[in-house]
Amino acid sequence: MRKFACPSCGADVTFRSAQSVYAVCPYCQSMVVRGDVDVTSIGVMAALPEDMSPLQLGSGGYFEDQPFTLIGRLKIGWRDGLWNEWHLLMADGRRGWIGEAQGSFSVSFELEGVLPRDVAQTFEYCLPLLTGGEGADEAKPGFLVELGGTTLRAVDIKLATCLGSEGELPFAAPKGRRTVAVDCIGVGGEFATLDHDGHRARAYVGRYVEWDALRFTNLRPLEGW
């Protein structure tokens, strides 16, 4: 864990993961990027849209019997809704994501190394969506992708826009960052999301996990619940 003084307000900005390069100061919402020795402010993050999520930065939980902590969040919007991508740090140092949409929780980890051919193919079809164009005829949900030995079906393809972020993240996520996101599901609850921000493609693979199994702690209070 490393602490830097926020270049804007002087408060502590903590990087709990050595791989995090980007963080939002919890006190003044300055967006900071980590350099070799210090951090540089690149602007100020607007307040995130309100929601009824029970999660917050610092919430703990378990995935496959290993504890994790939520260290960052992206708020994503698309034409028909919003969702949260929580960045998590596992006890063994791995970093992953919890997609929180309509009360479903998907836990996924970025696929390392060269991306499978199916992913490249998918983006070839879908990338025009990012610039406001029409996707290819193949860019319709329903096709299958092979990812890490599992066959998954693409169930929705959307143009996602970052509405804001908080905490620490492995990449800069200013408001307005756009990606094409393709969600895929398997017969046994497997989950994957493929995304492309115009510069690079990423694939995250994991599974849907029930609320009880995540054994969350340090939840945010919710009025009336």
Binding site: P54, L57, G58, G60, F216, R220
Partner: peptide
């Protein structure tokens, strides 16, 4: 409330979120 699992929260590095409430 009963749906919230109990457990000791870890040391909090950030100010907690304001409670969620209907709007």
């Amino acid at each position: 409330m009963d749906d919230q699992p109990s457990g000791s929260p870890p040391a909090q590095p950030v100010p907690p979120r304001a409670p969620g409430r209907p709007r």
